[in-house]
């Protein structure tokens, strides 16, 4: 049984103690995109009925020990693992990305930004893989302006893991300058290979450091983030309508 094309999708947004972009994501999903956003407290144990899951940005558990390290043991994470193993789309933004790394949904780890600052600014990223459920409305190589806001976005993977990411198009976004050159100076945080976002091998989980939910509507004079939400929602509609 699938959904009809006009049925609103149900997007679960997980709320951890210390999440602070959960409502921004819910706003984009419901007010901007016209679908149903469900805030799900991290102590819940099911994501039943959800079409996709967003792990929002923030400071889950105050970033104690390591970013995302405690949130990964929240009861809801087991349900999300099962959901993702069945091919469900999971989008982790900023702290959500850090949680996905700690929980092993995605390979690698985050280090402190090279200059030790909390960086809150617009960055440019290049879409390295426009054939994912989260980026298919972008053009390959398209340059997006997206804001970052983090102190631990310095992505690290060991050489073997990095080669695998490169070889299998798992690097979805790279920091670049406004002309699309991924250089050292356009790398805000020291991230290896200018990585700003990666997907898992199966392609249904995306982690991204910049915040698409902060630039997804006209009032922000930058709607580049809209493309990420739009891609995800269209993928879901396509998939579910095929199942009818």
């Amino acid at each position: 049984m699938g959904k009809k094309r006009h049925d609103p999708l149900n997007i679960g947004i997980i709320v951890f103690p210390g999440s602070n972009c959960d409502r921004d994501c819910a706003h984009v999903v419901s007010e901007v995109m016209g679908h149903a956003a469900h805030l799900i407290w991290h102590q819940e144990r099911t994501v039943q009925g959800m079409d996709a899951i967003i792990l929002p940005g923030g400071f889950s558990y105050g970033d104690y020990l390591r970013t995302g390290s405690i949130a990964r043991f929240s009861p809801i994470m087991e349900a999300i693992l099962e959901f993702s193993n069945q091919g469900g789309l999971v989008l982790g933004i900023c702290n959500g990305f850090q949680i996905l790394l700690e929980a092993g949904f995605l390979p690698g780890a985050m280090l402190r930004n090279t200059d030790l600052s909390f960086i809150c600014e617009d960055t440019y990223v290049r879409v390295e893989n426009a054939a994912t459920p989260f980026t298919h409305t972008c053009k390959p190589g398209q340059i997006l302006k997206l804001p970052i806001a983090h102190a631990e976005g310095n992505y690290y993977a060991d050489p073997v893991t990095l080669s695998a990411l490169q070889a299998t198009a798992q690097i979805v976004f790279r920091y670049c300058d406004k002309d699309g050159h991924a250089t050292t100076t356009s790398n805000p945080n020291g991230s290896i290979d200018n990585i700003a976002g990666i997907r898992n091998a199966q392609g249904n989980v995306l982690g991204i450091m910049p915040h698409p939910e902060r630039c997804a509507e006209e009032i922000f004079r930058n709607q580049n983030g809209h493309l990420i939400f739009e891609s995800m929602l269209i993928s879901l509609l396509g998939k579910t309508s095929l199942a009818v």
């Binding site: 020990l65 390591r66 043991f73 390979p107 690698g108 780890a109 690290y156 993977a157 060991d158």
Partner: peptide, 8 residues
């Protein structure tokens, strides 16, 4: 499990 991230 928790205290160290053995990736780094």
């Amino acid at each position: 499990k928790l205290l160290a991230n053995t990736v780094i």
